[in-house]
């Protein structure tokens, strides 16, 4: 019963970290870990469909697209 609370606290920490990072690559990686943990949370809440979609889109494809876009633009935030 303690597992979803731990996951939610980690999710809050990762969300705040991804807002605070000045280096955008670190923010993207922390968003990828956020997606992976939230897919674990969805699986725990008995929604395997949403879990598969979240793990494939959030941690796989969106990270690749973000990193490609960072490569085409600036890496550091002002």
């Amino acid at each position: 019963m303690i597992i979803p609370q731990i996951i939610i606290i980690l999710l809050i920490i990762l969300g705040i970290l991804s807002l605070q990072f000045k280096d955008l690559l670190n923010a993207v990686i922390s968003l990828a870990i956020f997606s992976l943990l939230s897919s674990l949370l969805f699986y725990y809440l008995h929604a395997p469909d949403v879990s598969i979609a979240e793990a494939a889109v959030g941690a796989g494809v969106a990270t690749v697209i973000f990193i490609a876009v960072i490569g085409k633009t600036r890496r550091k935030e002002e």
């Binding site: 395997p48 469909d49 598969i52 494939a56």
Partner: peptide
């Protein structure tokens, strides 16, 4: 079983 068109398509694309 869990899965479907969109999820399987994204896994193929990955």
């Amino acid at each position: 079983s869990p899965g479907g068109g969109f999820q399987g398509g994204v896994v193929l694309a990955s």
